[in-house]
Amino acid sequence: MPVSVKNDYPSEADETLVKWAQQGDTEAFEQLVFRHRDKIYARALMMMRNEDQALEYSQEAWVKSWQRLVQFQGDSSFATWVTRIVINLCLDQLRRQKRVRTESIEAMEEESGGVERQLPAPESNPTAGLEQDELRRRIDEALGKLTDAHRTVVVLHEFEGLEYKEIAKRIGISIGTVMSRLFYARRRLAFLLQSLKRERSE
């Protein structure tokens, strides 16, 4: 166990805190939780769209990350590693609730090319003139209007940077379905953002 004064923790880099935590230092781990808790919670909230569940799964992700800490080799940042854990927890939950694999009428239309044709192509600058906080809020609102299945592929692709193949594997769907859902989700987002812009100008 490293000899350290408690006040040192906030000024230490993640890498150092992780090493200490791997040796059983719970105060170092607490500092990591404090540092990244909002990001982990935000990702869970984006996936689940429910504050209680987001809180529960984000905390569960921290517990799991403590239990698996020895497996963390530093191939990615610590925050990215914990984010992947919380995403897996949320995906498990969504799968259990059949929220990501269920084929709705909308999904069938989407995959047959029906709805996507009725939506506009993404506009060059659908949110011009909005303040940053407002923009962030509107994007969140638009994401919230997507189905779980569509929002999940957007989160995994746009925010987690996963390739189609990896998304397909994680969700348990075909690559073609990933592409189709992503395309539909993007067009719907563009449509929703344009609608919000129109509302604002009226």
Binding site: A42, A54, S58, P122, I139, L143, E158, F159, A190
Partner: peptide, 18 residues
């Protein structure tokens, strides 16, 4: 359009506070 939408949502990724 697809490129700009991607850039936009990544730049303004929604945040939340515990």
């Amino acid at each position: 359009g697809l490129r700009q939408l991607g850039t936009l949502i990544r730049a303004y990724e929604p945040t939340a506070t515990v």
